[in-house]
Nucleic acid binder design. Structure first.
Lengths: 230, 230
DNA sequence: CAGGGTGTACCGCGTTTGTGGTACACCCTG
DNA sequence: CAGGGTGTACCACAAACGCGGTACACCCTG
């Protein structure tokens, strides 16, 4: 079978040579090209149609993040693995947004590098654990409240706002829960009350917000900042 | 220095024994306890205060996902690494939502397992590449592609904004309607289709956003700007 | 103390939503 | 042309929700 075509973009001459050397002993991977900058990135990918690209982030001229966007645009099926020393969050997310599917720190060992190239081609996303953690943290930010029936340490200091909307503190809490996407049952469990009581509060909320479904209430609350506390 | 305290939850006796055996030869990790089920998970973590927990997903009684929530609630600093054979998406996201910071497939080698335990304690998120890929795919969904290409002279055609979210154009429309608080009937009327078709599209939305109710979908969409057109 | 607001709880009833199927017609793309 | 994705539509069943009512125990405040 034909080896996997790999193109490398890495401005550091020593490191680029190391990579070339490394893959010279990897029969199933063929480095078809290696560039010290990304000026010709579009031509490079259209010409070589590589399965995988190893992309350094810090490069003069077009940097690796922008270049990644170009690669994915010119050849969507090409998998891009970022290679960097920095763990800067913004960089990471920009790269991932632009379509990178792997993200390795340069301190990764040679074996790991080689294996990562294979993995990304097989549909995986090799990622240094430190990077993965940052992605997960972001993931958590955007994912509210697990639905386990457990006491939630909630400090609603929102009394003033509550008054502004006419919602009672309790209703405010329930509204927050609604916005988190919880069902009556889950809210009941969370607050140790019966689902009927939840219903009562929710009826109060509907009356005061002039809505008549969960969906409207959530939409209203989020659009007006009544809940969702970003 | 004191070794890292590890607690294992794994119902398969053979595999649990293998793990015990494995860590017996790992001086910097001490398995303080290993259980075949999660019935006593809360007590276990409060008693042992482990730095790391290895948690199987498929277990009788309380499953690993639910147990993870309990662990994080009882001991927030404890890091939980999921261990599973399945690559089911919902499982993965539930576990991560509930606070797991690592996610390994059981086919991972012994060295990888040991290293993962160390890494998760050092602040990383060891993750099998196949898992990482799924997380990234989800990540992409929620990121309405702001290509950083400030310097990009080529004006990367953003033709497919809708595709960027992974939602089809139709699903995008339906999502907008949901955010407006419309019911199935109203959406059906608005788009001149049957309520069943609305349901189909909404199912597609739920699947892609990993939610399972109108409330969650609306909340998700608004928090991420997937809809609500600001 | 009487009355209003709040938080709690229960009941019933009809509607909406969620889940899991099957089906077919289109349009692509390999 | 076979196969995958999309958009359409239908069916059946269970769970969740919305609406109406009643009830009682608080804690205020007039």
């Amino acid at each position: 079978m034909t080896p996997l075509r790999l193109v490398i973009f890495e401005d550091n001459n020593d490191f680029r040579e190391s990579l070339l050397h490394l893959f010279r002993f990897t029969p199933d991977v063929e480095v078809v090209a290696a560039y010290p900058d990304c000026s010709g990135v579009r031509n490079a990918v259209t010409q070589w149609k590589p399965e995988v690209v190893l992309m350094d982030i810090d490069m003069p001229g077009l940097n690796g993040i922008e270049a990644t966007a170009v690669v994915k645009e010119a050849s969507p099926t090409t998998q891009v693995v970022m290679l960097t020393v920095s763990e800067e969050e913004d960089r990471i997310f920009q790269a991932l947004r632009n379509g990178a599917t792997g993200y390795l720190l340069k301190k990764s060992g040679p074996d790991e590098l080689v294996e990562s190239v294979r993995l990304v081609h097989k549909g995986g996303s090799p990622m240094s654990p430190a990077i993965a953690r940052k992605v997960l943290q972001f993931f958590h930010l955007t994912q509210a409240t697990p639905q386990t029936a457990a006491a939630a340490p909630k400090t609603v200091e929102t009394d003033d706002d509550a008054l502004a909307t006419g919602l009672t503190p309790r209703e405010q809490e329930i509204l927050e829960a609604l916005v988190d996407g919880l069902s009556y049952k889950m809210i009941a469990a969370k607050h140790f009350i019966s689902t009927d009581t939840v219903k009562n509060h929710i009826q109060g909320i509907y009356r005061k917000l002039h809505v008549n479904s969960k969906g409207e209430a959530i939409s209203f609350a989020l659009k007006r900042g009544l809940a969702g506390n970003r």
